[in-house]
Amino acid sequence: MAPRTDFPPVRACLFDMDGLLLDTEDIYTLCVNLILDKYSRPSLPWSIKAQLQGRPGPSANKIFLDWAQLPISSDEFAAENAALHQKLFPGTKPLPGVPELLTSLVRTQEAGIETPPVHIALATSSHLGNFKLKTNHLSDLFSVFPANRRVVGDDTRLTPGRGKPLPDIFLLALKTINDSLPEGEAPIKPEECLVFEDSVPGVEAGRRAGMRVIWCPHPMLKKEYAGREEEVLAGRTGEAGQVDLHQVGELGDGWAEYLVSLENFPYEKYGMVIPPVKA
């Protein structure tokens, strides 16, 4: 189909965290592979890892454990994995382009009426404890997300079992923005939102929410979906099963785009005006 070109300017950016803002995906892989090696199991292939990314912890763990066939219980695996996370996650770093992107968007909110503000919110499947573990040493970076505009995987405002690839987390993230807009600013519509995701379930969640999407995956995930990029961008890889397919996009509809990194982000393409840095 012909791609849509008459989009309104983006007024809100909604961000995933793991593998999108932070370099956590390789840390996750390292932790899992250390456990697999301990029990003489093969290393985690990207064909399986791709199914884990972006999902809430319980559903991701079930997929992994069904594949891994470890000689330990799920609770024992969780304990060993958590111990490795405690050791390694405090060393997470922002991915290339992330600090510049976030600070640029924040400047739109501080510029006054001459520059339309672009609001931001966080929408991560990580539970609050893991979120803190990964970000406590990056307080300056994450301070751009107001506390009420941070949606985590175990957020009480979310319905249990409705994680990515279902759209709830992004719809809630948008609600947190609309509920706290300055007086007189019109509510933001889904099509005025830009979702930033690295995972395939996350892209599908954004598309199901009726939002535009930037897909910025790990190079190995991109390789795993070689030849299926348009399916990913349309949210049509079937990650959520055969439910509500009318909510996903169409191939080549122009609502989603692949980027190799978040460096030198094309703000103008999305109708965002970034004010210059004040001297």
Rank of each mutant, 00 (worst) to 15 (best):
S73P: 04
K222N: 11
G129M: 05
T24S: 15
K62A: 13
K278N: 11
G206T: 04
N148D: 14
P117F: 02
V243E: 14
P187D: 02
T156D: 13
W255M: 04
K62I: 12
V152N: 06
Q109V: 03
G19D: 04
G206A: 03
S40K: 15
G112K: 08
T103R: 07
L102S: 01
T24I: 13
L101P: 06
S180D: 15
D75Q: 14
G206H: 10
V273I: 14
P160D: 07
T237I: 11
L14A: 08
A186S: 14
K222G: 09
H85R: 10
L30H: 14
I27Q: 09
H218R: 01
T92K: 06
P190M: 11
L95P: 03
E76M: 06
L174F: 09
D155L: 07
D18T: 10
D18W: 00
A2E: 13
V195C: 01
I274C: 01
R11H: 05
L262F: 15
R149G: 01
F64Q: 01
A226G: 08
E80P: 06
V118S: 05
S139R: 13
L44P: 00
V106E: 03
S104A: 15
D198E: 11
P90N: 04
E239K: 12
P219Q: 08
D23K: 08
K87N: 09
M17T: 04
Q242V: 13
A83S: 12
F131T: 04
G206L: 11
F77M: 11
P275D: 02
E76H: 10
K93L: 15
L128R: 14
W46H: 14
L20S: 10
N33F: 11
S43L: 13
A279D: 14
K93G: 00
R207L: 02
V106C: 09
I188R: 05
E224D: 12
R162N: 15
I72T: 08
L36G: 01
Y258F: 15
R162M: 15
I274R: 09
N136V: 08
N148C: 10
L133K: 08
A173I: 06
L245I: 13
S199V: 04
D155V: 07
I120C: 13
S74Y: 08
R157E: 14
S125V: 07
E263R: 09
S59H: 03
E80C: 07
V203G: 08
W215I: 07
S74A: 15
D154F: 04
D37F: 05
R212V: 01
P182H: 09
R55N: 02
